[in-house]
Simulated scan of single mutants.
Amino acid sequence: MFEAKNISVRYGKHLALDNVSLSVGEGECVVILGANGAGKSSLLRGITALSPRAPGGSVHYCGQDISDVPAFGIVELGIAHVPEGRGVFTKMSVEDNLRLGGNPVRARGSLNERRDEVLEMFPKLAERRRQIVGTMSGGEQQMVAIARALMSQPDLLLLDEPSLGLAPIVVGEMFETLKRVRDTGMSILIVEQNVHASLNLAARGYVIEAGRIVGEGDANTLMNDPVISEAFLGH
């Protein structure tokens, strides 16, 4: 369904991502593991054209070369990106954030139906539709960010560190919601440092270090890899 080949991202003289290749199958959940500064966020930003990619790489989606498609066009194709830091509109209500998420042309025809489906996945948000997002907790704001992305009717959802800064109980609730999203058949590419939770969600994963892919495998293999265990699980 999705394939990136030899993606590089450079910020000035700093090479943040160096010839990274990966793929996501239809209905598959894939995790990108790596320490802070490894290049995980740059990878997602490069995929969605939020950061300029260096020449030579390519991005294909559903058989189409989308290497030159701008960020707003990426959304219209059916790829939604929830960035690190959430990016929600804090002075607006939950309802208005969701309506903005449904603004792409592909989603406008079924805005109300989609909103009802999304709120069914996020019952807490259904109770707080009129609440100003800036008055909500970090976990609730993260749910708004994911729900808003789902409003665009994506087929591929990109998540950048969704559990960052959240209390453990909130992280558990969020990953349970992501399992429900996964079980709808949506493809998911998730960047995450919570190895246990993300490998329980994903079918397989990649390990990125210093801007390069240094390992990959199915979730069970990665969970039991001694290098992964020592680096991320504290064993």
Score class of each variant (00 low, 15 high):
216 E>V: 11
80 A>L: 02
119 L>R: 15
233 L>S: 01
16 A>S: 04
184 T>E: 10
26 E>G: 10
189 L>S: 02
91 K>F: 12
183 D>C: 08
198 S>D: 01
68 D>T: 15
163 S>R: 05
89 F>R: 06
109 G>Q: 10
163 S>K: 05
77 L>F: 04
193 Q>A: 02
94 V>K: 03
28 E>I: 05
99 R>W: 07
26 E>S: 14
13 K>C: 08
43 L>A: 09
73 G>F: 03
92 M>W: 13
8 S>K: 02
168 P>A: 12
104 P>R: 01
123 P>C: 14
87 G>V: 00
52 P>E: 14
55 P>R: 04
102 G>Y: 01
202 A>L: 01
118 V>I: 03
137 S>L: 13
169 I>C: 13
149 A>P: 05
232 F>R: 07
63 G>P: 05
4 A>D: 01
232 F>I: 08
172 G>A: 07
128 R>N: 13
107 A>W: 00
223 M>T: 15
148 R>Y: 04
26 E>N: 11
93 S>R: 14
144 V>L: 12
41 S>I: 07
44 L>T: 12
176 E>D: 15
115 R>L: 14
29 C>D: 07
138 G>S: 11
102 G>E: 05
17 L>A: 03
175 F>R: 03
145 A>G: 05
122 F>C: 15
144 V>A: 07
96 D>G: 01
19 N>M: 00
25 G>L: 00
79 I>W: 00
43 L>P: 06
87 G>Y: 05
214 V>T: 15
141 Q>T: 10
79 I>H: 00
26 E>Q: 13
226 P>D: 06
167 A>W: 08
70 P>Q: 09
161 E>A: 02
15 L>G: 05
57 G>Q: 02
99 R>Q: 10
110 S>T: 15
40 K>H: 12
25 G>R: 04
102 G>S: 04
164 L>K: 06
118 V>G: 06
1 M>R: 07
235 H>V: 14
197 A>M: 07
80 A>Y: 01
154 P>R: 00
51 S>M: 11
104 P>Q: 11
70 P>E: 09
3 E>L: 04
99 R>A: 09
23 S>M: 02
119 L>P: 14
44 L>P: 09
3 E>H: 09
182 R>W: 05
11 Y>C: 01
44 L>N: 08
66 I>P: 14
153 Q>F: 08
59 V>L: 11
174 M>E: 14
84 E>N: 06
82 V>H: 06
233 L>R: 01
45 R>Y: 09
155 D>Y: 10
196 H>I: 15
219 A>I: 08
123 P>R: 12
53 R>I: 03
50 L>T: 10
106 R>M: 02
124 K>G: 15
22 L>V: 00
208 I>M: 03
153 Q>W: 11
192 E>K: 01
199 L>P: 06
44 L>Y: 11
127 E>F: 06
164 L>I: 13
76 E>R: 06
177 T>A: 13
117 E>S: 15
180 R>M: 06
25 G>H: 00
171 V>T: 12
193 Q>P: 00
176 E>T: 13
156 L>F: 08
54 A>T: 08
138 G>K: 04
50 L>F: 10
128 R>P: 10
30 V>R: 01
191 V>Y: 04
149 A>T: 07
87 G>Q: 03
156 L>D: 06
85 G>H: 03
176 E>V: 12
159 L>E: 08
136 M>R: 08
233 L>V: 01
76 E>F: 06
135 T>Q: 12
55 P>C: 03
140 E>I: 09
99 R>I: 15
209 E>R: 13
139 G>D: 12
